[in-house]
Design a protein around this nucleic acid. Structure first.
Length: 465
RNA sequence: UCCGGAGUAGCUCAGUGGUAGAGCAGGCGGCUGUUAACCGCCGGGUCGGGGGUUCGAAACCCUCCUCCGGAGCCA
């Protein structure tokens, strides 16, 4: 009977049972006169299964002794208590079939040793076979499922907001153009400009930079909604925290204010990380041992503590009084720099912190103006080592105030016609936030470069595979 | 985009002007239960590309490419 390796290693299969496992060879340790040990992994858990192949096995010399790292095998044998240390049970093979050989072992890119993350990125099609990327992949999946479970259990509805958008003024950064026109020879108007009217959508179109504006419409009907999908930014940003294509989670809640929003963010992060701690102990133990010794304690600490809340004004005062010399000066009205965020999270609070009520000048048009007329009900959740993990706000639900903001910023009211309609027909206070999914994975695992927590990273000059 | 660092064997790296090295991986041999096994032998190089200086360049100079870290932008 076929079994996943996770079942066997967690005691789900009785000692003495006959099993068949299918997977890939991680290492082979051979003893010419005696027997061979094969470490087989199938992705179902962190640990590989130890398969013991006795020399009497049919085809031992021809097959088993030539198996190398990367070979795909099918093993049938008996589950036995292990004589060695390092695993409770192993499989004593009665038959080993090589399903797929490694053509040229000398050039097979994966070796049973530690590779650099930079090198693994160059072989993105084979890196999921490694310990570290395998662990990241399971963590990513577990967190994704936890996200949906969290929202589903609280009555949120998952909204599939569009990937392609024709409203190019969302203001969240550079966008990728979507077009079917011949780039080398586009149709022109009489005036010589590119005639977008002849393009597929009859107007300029781009890949979305956020599902928020669209999801707000469903929030005004379903009350509690969220998006979870890919997002695209054409910024030429070359850092370990940015991707051109990444996944974002954006809940939106009706009849809610900024305090509700911050509470949701806190409950949400605690819930998904609690799930991760429960379900992926094996992978987290690996990250703690080889990547980031503090990752488990950091997660455990987060789920137990209450998030610190801090007014933007207080944050600025704290920084001013710190006596610390910052490269960029701190002054009310300026956005917090990376070095400021690091100081607040890593030295003052030593944990996640929600900074609220920022000056309106440095935030988006849709954020709700506070009574002081100077700040908006915005919120950034900052995390040590990551920076901004969540950005959110209460939305401006008053049409006259929203229009005044659009005018102030010189934005075209017609472009936002349907968005303004929401304020004309049954408007209610509402709020939401955006979480960069990859940043959450980075936070959980301690993986430093965001390109290593997504299967196929897209970044400037990087779209291979 | 700006600043800094790096590019030498399949991988990780050493090599500061005088004929290209190590460990791991691979092949062969040895070893009765190993844990990234161990021991011996062998094969393996456009020193990122181009140009220059020099009797002689992996090394020094110019230039381009790629990657990494930091900053900005942000999630």
């Amino acid at each position: 009977m076929k079994h996943r390796i996770a079942e066997i290693l967690t005691g789900g299969v009785a000692v003495g049972a006959r099993v068949t496992v299918e997977g890939w060879i991680r290492t082979r340790r051979a003893s010419k006169a005696g027997l061979s040990f094969l470490a087989v992994h199938d992705g179902s858990c962190f640990d590989a299964l130890q398969v013991v192949a006795p020399a009497e096995l049919p085809g031992y010399a021809e097959v088993v002794l030539h198996v190398v790292t990367g070979c795909a095998v099918r093993v049938t044998g008996e589950v036995v208590a292990s004589q060695g240390k390092g695993q409770p049970v192993e499989v004593r093979a009665e038959a080993i079939e090589v399903v797929g050989w490694v053509d040229d072992p000398e050039t097979y890119p994966m070796q049973p040793k530690r590779h650099t993350m930079e090198y693994l990125r160059e072989v993105a099609h084979l890196r999921p076979r490694t310990n570290v990327i395998g662990a990241v992949t399971r963590v990513r999946h577990t967190l994704a499922m936890a996200v949906h479970r969290f929202f589903h259990e609280r009555g949120f509805v998952w909204i599939h907001t569009p990937i392609i958008t024709a409203s190019d003024a969302e203001g969240a950064g550079q966008m990728f153009r979507v077009s079917t026109l011949d780039a080398a020879n586009p149709p022109r108007t009489a005036g010589g400009a590119v005639d977008w009217n002849q393009d597929f959508f009859g107007k300029e179109a781009h890949l979305t930079v956020s599902g928020q504006l669209n999801v707000e419409t469903y929030c005004m009907a379903m009350s509690r909604v969220y998006t979870f999908g890919p997002t695209f930014r054409a910024e030429n940003s070359n850092t370990r925290r940015h991707l051109a294509e990444f996944w974002m989670i954006e809940p939106e809640i009706a009849f809610a204010d900024l305090a509700d929003d911050a509470q949701l963010a806190e409950d949400f992060l605690k819930a998904i990380f609690t799930t991760l701690l429960d379900e992926r102990r094996d992978d987290l133990a690996f990250f703690a041992k080889h990547v980031d010794p503090g990752c488990q304690a950091r997660l455990a600490g987060l789920v137990e503590s209450r998030f610190e809340r801090m007014e933007y004004g207080d944050a600025v005062r704290t920084l001013e009084r710190s006596g610390k010399r910052f490269e960029f000066p701190v002054r009310w009205g300026m956005d917090l720099q990376a070095e400021h965020e690091r100081y607040l999270t890593e030295e003052v609070v030593k944990g996640p912190i929600a900074v609220v009520n920022y000056p309106k000048e440095i935030k988006a048009f849709y954020m709700r103006l506070n009574d002081d007329g100077k700040t908006v009900a915005a919120m950034d959740v900052l995390a040590p080592g990551i920076g901004e993990l969540i950005g959110g706000s209460q939305r401006e639900e008053r049409l006259d105030v929203l229009d005044a903001r659009l005018d102030e910023l010189g934005l075209d009211k017609q472009t936002y016609g349907w968005y303004r309609d929401l304020r004309r027909y049954g408007t209610v206070p509402h709020a939401g936030f955006g979480l960069g999914f990859e940043r959450a994975i980075q936070y959980a695992t301690g993986i430093e470069n965001i390109r290593d927590v997504i299967p196929f990273p897209r970044a400037p000059r990087q779209a291979d595979f």
